[in-house]
Design a protein around this nucleic acid. Structure first.
Lengths: 244, 244, 244, 244
DNA sequence: CATGAATGAGAATTCATTCAT
DNA sequence: AATGAATGAATTCTCATTCAT
């Protein structure tokens, strides 16, 4: 029976409903870029910087990192070129300011995964964690995508992205009860499942695949639960919306 | 026990060894770009085009699609700008020439997955298929990565990448014995597992994660086998090389 | 013998010792820039203006006039852009404020050359004058160098620099006892020697050439004395420190 | 009498007349800038590069190094921005290309000074040398001035300028007959006289001072001859044009 | 076929100067 | 009187694409 008892609605009440541990969105960019850190910003300055950061997020999302023009960002932020360079050394600097904070939030999220047993409670914990991940991913998709774009390069970005990935893997591994292992090295399996989680979210959020959010989360939770935590398969359950 | 009986060495004999269904590498770019198709190419012309295509692959791999410059390609091909435009309308055109053929090969590969039962033979089939996929991915990484880069956009590329992905999913679904389902919608699970496969290969090939190729393939095969094809977990098996 | 009798120490007592006619350093900038002259400055205002002038001198010295940025000056003065334009119309205006006073001091110095006879007293007079010049040059090097930079242009600066130069030449000419002439037009020779004096000081102070200050002054005094004032060569004298 | 016997006209026959050792003007820029050196230039390319170098010389002369815009150079060379960067990495690179060759020519000139005795032949040698120097200076004034502008900085330019200066000094020193010394260290005196020669030429060529070319050369030659080579003063000679 | 050369639109960046508080 | 913030014109540099030989 297991899963029937869980109440997904308790963990989430729709895209914007209450969450188990609410993610403090848009706390991002608090530190600002290089030039901004040499000056003491007043209220107005901080507001402008915020506008630029938000604009950056928007533009990166729409155009991708590479294609984004400083001009686009400046226009979206309703300010001038000169002003941009008052706060950031260049596009990369703005991106870094965003990325650093996204990395922090992601790390915090990664470490928020509690103990996961093979039972229904374990499933619920995992499911809620994935739900929070999905929300974060949705908000910071632009940054995360750009990470991937840049991950190959040996710049900071690459490292940053890799670090976050590693932390997710570690979080899962730390929670594994080794007795439940499936016949695969749990460390490697954890990498596989993080890959799965990341990419599925990407596919769905970038509209490359049309799957219902809930269905995605259920599927990811089930596979991960079974794959790493000894979760049992629950035959006969077919409550899913079929995709068109 | 099951797996012990299989002979991975039969399915692969090292990076360059014989394969079950040899991938016709470098048949790629056979059609060429727009300008080239309006002319009848002689031997020398075809050789030049090939140099440009190869150079493109190299440069895209090193720099990524967006960052690649026509100049880089031209230099790598040991030819001139003028010549480039004799064969391709622009960078995108060259990329398309590469991508079309990669897509064909990928599709062929996707459809080469035979019946997969819950037994050891099914596992072997899956494992061999993943092995072939890994080889292809390795060769065409540049193109595949660029697909991802562009997948969001509504250009041809995006569509192409999405199509290939869809075919992989379909291939898996077509082989599922629906009775063995895990408590998740197999269609959605298939998407999840394709996501896992793609991204794990990406992580490994782009050196973001250090996992042995064999270990990766075993893990992917096991998880997929269990997740979609009723494969049984084989307790106690721990034959894996731990990563450093 | 002549020179042996002179007492260079009487004319100077080391880099910071007493001088025959002490140079009123830092009386410079007394008039201020255009905007400052339209207002009555209180003590605080005058202090700020001074900080800006000093900063200007420093920055011009380090960077040169052209390369100096208002931002550099403002930072060096520990004040803001807004404040800068409260006192000066622009960089040129600040420079002019400095230059006018430097020109005055230079002119005063030029005219302070007393009668120069062919004897040892004449030599001493010349030597002391050159010593004073060197001190002034050291202090106002930035301005003088910038004059040179700008001398070609037909701006005020150019004129100012040329005027100062002309005054030096006149001062020498006025002191020449025409009977002692060397076979060259004393007016032209005077130009040559002013050129020599200026450039040698420049070379030494800008570290382009490593010559001891005293040696430089002795040499310049001797050559000028001989060249224009009938000074006799004094054989056998080799009291100089050889440069490394 | 001495000098009367000399024939300045033998050494020069007006600004463009025959010279003792003709200076190969405009052999400059032969090596080109960084980007040009990576490519094999054809005739057309070399012509364009030459146009750019000549334009650079012109513009630097008119505006000075700092104030010169790449745009000015491009316009003067009748070509495009893009083309400029095909041959030079930037303004500095073009300048360096000019400067390197000017330095070479200057060095060659410096070393072309033959033995200088205290007699009239020695004077003639010196006079001819100064004449050649003046011609070179006239042609390359822009570069030389910019050297001075940049000499303070620790860039290549500075070093280059200093080197050339040092070579001139060495050339003079090498020719000094030490017995004829004037009571000053000949090494230091040589520096003084090089300073004089350089700056006088500068004053005259930049029109800061109106002195006839011939008069300048006679004066410089006389002072140098006397100062370093035991040349005798020749009383009563007053053949000079007075300046207005 | 091949290629070196040329082009110019577009993107990034700097910096003097003005503005609002 | 002081200052942080904003501005935008001017400048440098890049790079896809076309041209002439």
């Amino acid at each position: 029976m297991a899963i029937e008892g869980r109440s997904p609605e308790a963990a989430e009440a729709g895209p914007d409903g209450p969450r188990l541990s609410p993610v403090p969105l848009r706390a991002v960019g608090s530190r600002g870029g290089a030039p901004a850190q040499e000056r003491a910003l007043r209220a107005r300055g901080r507001r402008t910087m915020r506008r630029l950061l938000d604009a950056g997020m928007t533009v990166f999302e729409k155009r991708g990192y590479q294609a984004a023009r400083v001009d686009d960002i400046v226009k979206a932020a309703n300010t001038s070129h000169g002003t941009f360079y008052l706060y950031f050394a260049n596009k990369e600097d703005l991106f870094r300011a965003l990325a650093v904070d996204v990395a922090d939030e992601m790390t915090a999220l990664a470490e928020s995964l509690g103990p996961v047993g093979p039972d229904q409670d374990g499933y619920a914990e995992l499911r809620a964690w994935l739900d929070r991940f999905n929300h974060l991913y949705e908000h910071y998709q632009a940054v995360i995508t750009a990470w991937t774009e840049a991950a190959t390069s040996n710049t900071d970005f690459g490292r940053m992205g890799r670090d976050v990935m590693a932390r997710f893997t570690s979080a899962l591994i730390a929670r594994i009860d080794e007795t439940h292992v499936v016949g695969v090295d749990p460390q490697i399996a954890a990498v596989a499942l993080v890959a799965m989680i990341e990419r599925f979210n990407y596919f769905v959020l970038s509209r490359q695949v049309r799957v219902d959010r809930k269905d995605m989360l259920d599927t990811l939770a089930t596979i991960t639960h079974m794959g790493l935590f000894g979760g049992r398969r629950r035959a006969g359950r077919r409550p899913f919306t079929r995709r068109g």
